[in-house]
Computed example of a mutant assay.
Amino acid sequence: MNNLLKSGPDWSKPAKAPDPAPSANNATPQENPNDLAPMLTRENIKQLMRNPDSPESKALMEKTRARLTPEKIQAMVQGPKGEANAQTLKAIGKHLNNDEIDSDLAETKKQMVEEKTKELSRRNFEMLTQAFDGGSIESFVGNIKRLEDDRAAMQKQFSAANNAAKGLGDIGSSLTEDNVNKMRRDPGKTYSYNSTSESTLDAPSEIRDFTANDKLDLRGIQKQLNKPLQVVDNFSGASGEVKIDYSQSTKTSVVSVSGEPGKPPLVVKVFGEVRRENLMT
């Protein structure tokens, strides 16, 4: 993998060609993003991070992800309503920028800690009262076990809040003013892969001059494996995992997708930075 990140293009073979530009009749239908802004209020975002597993939070996250896919954003900023939609998307991006999300996450965690501290203070008082009243050792041990369970539950809540914040931040990163303006000027190119055998570690295909607006379409791989693809930091051995490696020094990315057990993964070498928002899964 490191050799791929460090080496230059293999000029002995042609680069991966982008998909043909869609005709007007086949383009993604333009959507109106105006209804998203009232949904993504500061309070709703904080509530989503506080209770990411609630039905309301799941529905909000799923709808936001479904409506703000790279291809749909691209479609929104093109056409006769493109400029108006672009302004709405930029406003949503400001709500979802990393500084705002980090601030909301910190405030949410602080509130969670304050509430738990009050609860623990009350419980400690009850424990002391029981001790003075001759409470049993079983009762004391039970309270200690509850404290350990509370600590584990708090860590789980913090982890879920971090994941929710990252999900929102990933969406927001595609809606910065610069990115939206670039999408208005340049629709970007799409490179599709339909089978893990199309590009392997031994014979990787190369995508050259990859830009921030370009897309790597892996939906064909998802269809081949018949399971959702999941972006991970490290492979676990399961199929359907997507890993992105990037070298800042060479400005080169390697995108890998684990395939069926016993078969080599898809490995694509990309000259340019591939981010999560560039993937179509």
Rank of each mutant, 00 (worst) to 15 (best):
L120F: 04
M112N: 07
P18A: 11
A17P: 02
P264G: 09
S195N: 15
S249V: 08
R65G: 13
A24P: 01
A91V: 11
K13F: 00
D149L: 04
K6C: 10
A59R: 13
S159P: 06
A75T: 02
E56N: 04
A37H: 11
L266A: 03
E107L: 09
P33V: 10
G259N: 05
N194T: 15
N213I: 07
G220R: 10
Q248L: 09
S258G: 04
N194F: 03
K215W: 07
K63M: 12
A165F: 01
E273N: 14
Q222L: 01
S121V: 08
D209I: 03
K109V: 05
K118E: 15
N97F: 00
M1L: 11
V231K: 15
L147D: 13
K269W: 02
M76R: 02
P9V: 10
T108A: 02
A91Q: 15
S205I: 01
R219T: 15
I73N: 01
L40D: 09
A15V: 12
M112R: 09
L279W: 09
L105I: 01
E43D: 15
E148V: 13
E100V: 11
E198K: 03
S159N: 14
A160Y: 07
V270A: 05
S205V: 05
P9H: 09
A21D: 13
